[in-house]
Nucleic acid binder design. Structure first.
Lengths: 163, 163
DNA sequence: CGGATATTATTCGTGCCCTGATAAGATATA
DNA sequence: TATATCTTATCAGGGCACGAATAATATCCG
């Protein structure tokens, strides 16, 4: 069976894959965006069989790793707006993976906790995410791993904040 | 005027800024996401006064740099789905920055071109984007610039494709 | 105490971005 | 020529993420 490749003979040819201003000389912001988008898409597809999105997985992980955070706490941890977290948690609530409990002393804060179903879901999700993560880690040359991680952190820190 | 900082005394303290699993030992995908999101947000805010979003700017730039691309061409260049490009171009059409012209010989393809208004808009946008880009470039240590760019490209290339 | 200020949760509106699906036009191969 | 295949454009639906705005609660300071 031969590859087809029709319908483009009479048209001006445009580079190839998705390499617009890519190559090692492309705009840095563009390279960063494509790398991030590619990984994000891969993770999303790895989680899709569980009917879970990457942001949902991130929120579940936060709740598991910190005591009993409020939505606002999650927003700060993930550098998201409270509105965004509100939507993600709503979807997780609807599916019964997390529960909201009124705060002991505060009166307005709703604290988030994993349900047992949520814990089971998180466990299955972790396994799927791990394989993608390890594939990503393998792209990182050992000699430059530290420098690259440091650079990512520096960029994130320096470009944060409303201004 | 003194800073206030109330309302958190009686609650368990959670790290600080948005540094959840950050630090240089955090998950690589997470670091990548935060760096990308931070830069994206900065660029969006730089373009906001022009009522332009970053994806819209990207599409304008593509059209300026390549002959007369179709929506599908743009999608390939930017590694986006045709549907997404369709939405972005629709918003640009509505505002009169670009125009659709039927392809000379094809009959179904709609070719995209910048209007004069679109060219003027792009020029103003480029200036704003340039300042953010140069700030980003300055975060890149000269000795590791090549390695980091190469890594970003490698990640983008390796994690692409439906699978 | 009482007002100023912050925080929390939530609603509305807009835009990005994906998956899935459909329909029309163009091409290649049998 | 005819059918299969590809490309293009577009609709529908859903989730993420932002800015702007609001109401309720809590804290600080005079």
């Amino acid at each position: 069976m031969v590859k087809h490749q029709p319908a483009r003979s009479a048209r001006p040819v445009i580079p190839t894959a998705g390499a617009a201003m890519r190559g090692t000389s492309g705009h840095l912001a563009y390279l960063l965006r494509q790398a991030s988008a590619a990984v994000r898409l891969d993770l999303d597809r790895a989680l899709a069989p569980l009917d879970l999105t990457l942001p949902q997985f991130a929120v579940l992980t936060m709740i598991a790793n910190y005591p009993s955070p409020s939505g606002a706490d999650i927003a700060r941890l993930a550098i998201l707006t409270p509105q965004t977290v509100n939507l993600i948690t709503r979807n997780l609530l609807r599916r019964g993976a997390i529960a909201q409990v009124p705060h002991a002393t505060h009166g307005r804060i709703l604290v988030l906790q994993l349900t047992t179903a949520g814990q089971a879901l998180l466990k299955k999700a972790r396994a799927r995410v791990a394989t993608v993560e390890s594939r990503l880690d393998r792209t990182l040359p050992a000699e430059q791993a530290g420098a690259i991680r440091a650079w990512l952190v520096r960029v994130a820190v320096e470009f944060i904040g409303p201004a």
